[in-house]
């Protein structure tokens, strides 16, 4: 029997209308459909500009898709279409069910790492005391030293910021984890730590959709690879049949 998906994207389209250049329409991606079950890790591959990041942002709804459906499983196995919810419902559900880790930490000014991760855990529905414990564990897991926990994140290094981001995205694991180049600034030791963390979340049943620019990460973590080309989903591959060309984009 086919397993129920955690995420099912149906005929999703996103284009931007740029009013500054006389209303030019730029298509980010078009008619994308795929689904991800619990514990599955789907990597998106393709050249720069193929629409990978736009797709992740549209699932998280930082971008508002032009058409299509994004069905997300939430508690008790029920589903919501993220494209058919009010703003406040989107904010509540994505905070609760989705972890989004971008390449760069875009946190609020004058916040410490611990506060950022606690806030994320609170949005997932934890109470204050549990959130504090979970946040401390999450920061330890990505190797952020305790002396940095209350320092404003603006003064942290690129790699440290990225790890704070990862801690916030994975604390009290969400049902769906969206990863957009989460390892790009990490040294080998921390990179290894992050790879182990992401892999362990998959084993715990978290559904993952990711973008990595290096083949090794994809081959270690992904169960399937979807290839995007100029905004279209053109192929599905096993991680071991990927060639370098498809991931070369970000280099």
């Amino acid at each position: 029997m086919r397993r129920d998906p955690v995420l099912e994207v149906r005929q999703l389209c996103k284009s931007f209308v740029l009013h500054a250049v006389s209303g030019r329409t730029v298509v980010a991606f078009d008619d994308v459909s795929f689904s991800v079950t619990a514990g599955e890790h789907v990597a998106l591959a393709g050249m720069s500009g193929a629409g990978k990041s736009s797709l992740l942002k549209s699932i998280y709804r930082t971008y508002r898709p032009s058409s299509g459906e994004v069905w997300l499983q939430i508690h008790a196995g029920d589903y919501v279409d993220m494209c058919a919810l009010s703003d406040i419902e989107v904010a509540t559900i994505r905070g609760h069910e989705i972890g989004y880790v971008s390449q760069f930490l875009r946190s609020e000014p004058r916040r410490g790492a611990l506060d950022i991760v606690i806030k994320s855990a609170r949005q997932r529905g934890m109470n204050e005391a549990d959130a504090r414990d979970a946040a401390a564990t999450a920061l330890q897991r990505v190797g952020i030293e305790e002396r940095l926990w209350d320092v404003y994140t603006s003064v942290l290094s690129g790699g440290e910021k990225q790890r704070v981001n990862l801690a916030a995205g994975t604390v009290h694991p969400p049902r769906l984890l969206l990863l957009d180049e989460p390892l790009s600034a990490l040294d080998p030791e921390n990179r290894e730590r992050a790879l182990v963390l992401i892999s362990s979340l998959s084993h715990r049943g978290v559904a993952v959709v990711s973008i990595f620019h290096d083949l090794e990460a994809i081959q270690r973590l992904a169960t399937r690879v979807l290839v995007l080309e100029r905004g279209h989903l053109v192929a599905e591959r096993r991680p071991d049949e990927l060639d370098e060309r498809l991931t070369a984009a970000a280099r």
Partner: peptide
């Protein structure tokens, strides 16, 4: 226009909002 704040900043739709964000 009305939206979530992150949507307005990253994906503004109205021409005026696009100008403000830019």
């Amino acid at each position: 226009e009305s939206a979530l704040t992150d949507q307005l900043l990253e994906d503004p739709h109205h021409s005026y909002t696009q100008r403000l964000v830019a």
